[in-house]
Simulated assay, not measured.
Amino acid sequence: MSDWEQGLLTATDAPAVVVHRTAGLSGQQATVAAVLDELEATAGQLFPAWLPGAEGITTSAGAAPVAVRRLAVAHAAATGQSGPFLADLAAAALTGSAAHTRRHPPEVRARGLARVIAASFGRPACALVLRPPDHLDEAATLALAQAAQWLVDHGRLTVWIDSDSPYGIESQPRATEPPSVARPRREPRAGTRRTRDVVGRPHPSSRAEVVLEAALARRTWAAGRAWNHTIRPGPLVNPVRVDLLWKRERCVVEIDGDDHRTPAKFTEDRHRDVMLQINGYAVLRFTNTQVLDDIDNVLVLLQQFLATRRRIRKGP
């Protein structure tokens, strides 16, 4: 267990962490189904911690299955969960049945299992660490990334992908946040992080990113860039989502909105910059205003920035 996973387990306001070693399946649906089956098995092992009133039911004999179903339906009604799902999950946990909730839509299973696991540890949310086999092929890498995005969008899970895939798995939104700021998926609010995956292109809601990409697309020196890319700066460093990256040159460019002026965000940005620099990345920051009002100067600085890094890389 890594230091940050241990930290999550000991912090009472952090999510409950589940580590799942995926099988490297080639389809999104198959990967999601395998993850949900694994989460259901975990929930079964945690029973009856997540079902108030079931503590004294230790056998599946007689009327016990009916009793836990009734408890589950009542608990679901009091907590806004799906009664039929929770009843099936409780009965399966009591009897030791596997994947007993497959008759329910995967969205219901994902949300329900996340809540059950979090409740078992008295935590506000559930975080899932996906650890696929080493050296996934391209199809399995894509399936895993899509499955993780699905779990974020539909299961309200926080997801991290721990992989050394040569195809560059892109960890999902919220999944890439460091554990100290991990949160369950909620409806978007003003000032929150982006909620849709836009790997490889500027975010459509950011006029500054769109304008800058349009300018860079016409310049040969800007080749090799990647927008909204997730990188792992070092083996002991959490993945980081950056606005713009030149991977070969190890150049990171961040486009900052007004929210980056707040003390908390300013401190977070400095921490990220130092961490990236320690691990060999150069970081350049522009504000939205600089990009929109003085694009020519931004382009000059970017060209110089890249040229310097390329000279350093080439050597004398």
Rank of each mutant, 00 (worst) to 15 (best):
C126I: 07
A147I: 00
L128G: 06
A226W: 05
K247S: 14
V129L: 14
A182M: 13
L128E: 03
P132T: 04
L130M: 05
R248S: 11
A208Q: 09
T195S: 06
E213D: 15
S163G: 02
V211L: 13
A223T: 02
T230Q: 11
G155A: 02
I161D: 02
W221I: 02
S165T: 08
A217Y: 05
L142A: 13
V129C: 01
L212W: 07
R248A: 14
A148Y: 06
A143F: 06
T176N: 12
A143W: 03
A190Q: 09
Y167P: 01
D164G: 15
A215Q: 15
Q149M: 09
L212R: 00
G191N: 07
D197H: 14
T158H: 11
N238F: 10
D153Y: 02
D197V: 04
R186Y: 03
P184E: 11
D153A: 15
R248N: 10
E177D: 15
L157Y: 06
W221R: 01
W160Q: 06
H154Q: 15
C126P: 02
A127I: 01
A215T: 02
A140S: 11
E138C: 08
R248E: 12
E138Y: 05
R225I: 05
R189G: 11
K247Y: 03
T141W: 02
R189I: 12
H135P: 00
P233H: 13
L245K: 04
E187Q: 14
Q146H: 15
A139V: 13
A217H: 11
W160R: 13
H135C: 04
E170G: 08
W160A: 12
R156Y: 12
G168T: 01
A226C: 12
R201E: 15
A145I: 10
V240S: 06
P202G: 04
R219M: 13
S165C: 10
A214F: 04
P239H: 09
P204W: 11
P173V: 08
V211K: 08
L216T: 04
P173Y: 13
P179N: 06
L130I: 08
A223C: 02
S206N: 03
C126K: 05
R189F: 11
P166T: 00
V199T: 15
D164I: 07
H135Q: 14
L216P: 01
A145S: 13
A148R: 07
T220C: 01
R207I: 07
D197F: 13
A217P: 01
T195P: 00
D243M: 08
R248D: 15
Q149R: 09
L130W: 05
A208F: 12
L142C: 08
D137N: 14
R131W: 01
P235R: 04
R201K: 14
V210Y: 03
P202K: 04
A226M: 11
I231G: 01
E209V: 10
L128W: 03
R193Y: 07
S206R: 04
A140W: 00
I169Q: 03
D134M: 05
A143E: 05
P202L: 06
H154C: 14
P202T: 08
D197N: 15
S163N: 08
K247N: 07
P132A: 03
A147P: 06
A215P: 02
A139Y: 03
S165I: 03
W227C: 02
H135A: 15
L128F: 05
